[in-house]
Write a protein that binds this DNA or RNA. Structure first.
Lengths: 141, 141
DNA sequence: ACTATTTTGGTACTAAAGTATGAGTGCTAA
DNA sequence: TTAGCACTCATACTTTAGTACCAAAATAGT
């Protein structure tokens, strides 16, 4: 979020600078208004393309190989055994209720585990947790 | 491809029109040069962002394609282009709302796509869809 | 030009998922 | 023995997800 604010701040700053430059240019008699508008238009388009491409970057995904589980990573994140079990089942697409049944626990307990997992993995949703867990190689592909 | 050419044609046409409009505006005394430049700048930035986002689609394939997507599988399942886009974003852990924002669509539309995806993939939940889609190699790991 | 499909969007629900908070149990290391 | 941690479960919400049904556009293909 801060990053986004920073970027937009930069963009606004750039806009202001260009704006001032354009104004100044208007008083240089050698340049016709045509040229000025064309130039500023080109610059603004470039700026827009830059912004558009920046927006793209957030979509790039890490690709992971189907390899062994990184137990170091698990330790570092402080994931408990139960949490790992729950995470694995969630990654297989089971609902909280189904996970609860498989592990002979109440749905409440699963929700607690899942919430704790989200904090430790720094995610907001289970699908995100699954993707991150696979990227970190803490569950089977 | 024709679509792309057509769109870029439109963009160029729009640029020319705006260009002419901007020139004409210079001779309307009510509008200060400040306003004109600001407006045209904003419009050009918008155009640039549009172009940038269009470029994005082609690029992301290059960046995230180390694991080949099984296009045969995609055809067999009858998944449309839009559905694939939505599926990919869901696999990255985004909520329906977030996907809607990224694709400039309403959440309703995303829900429709997601529901259709579930039928085609024969799953009940998004996490399950993600796991199955990865297993079938129809999205990037 | 005319279909078939895709894409988009809406309303109205129901069902899951997720958050916040509290609390009891049991195990273990200081 | 007690402080800390893992595990369990509950209540009470709020928020997303998902289903069902419908319908208007935009596109693609013939």
């Amino acid at each position: 979020m801060l990053k986004t604010i920073f970027r937009f701040g930069l963009i606004i700053a750039a806009l202001l600078i260009l704006f001032e430059l354009s104004k100044a240019s208007l008083f240089i008699p050698e340049l016709s208004s045509d040229v000025i508008i064309a130039l500023s238009g080109a610059v603004f388009v470039g700026l827009g393309i830059y912004v558009g491409l920046k927006l793209r970057k957030e979509r790039i995904v890490e690709v992971t190989a189907p390899v062994a589980i990184d137990h170091e990573q698990v330790k570092t994140l402080g994931l408990s055994e139960r949490e790992m079990e729950v995470l694995q089942l969630i990654a297989e697409g089971f609902s909280n209720k189904e996970v609860a049944e498989k592990l002979f626990l109440s749905e409440s307990t699963i929700k607690t585990h899942v919430s704790n997992l989200f904090v430790k993995l720094d995610v907001k949703r289970r699908a995100q947790a699954v993707t991150k867990a696979k990227a970190l190689r803490i569950i089977h592909a």
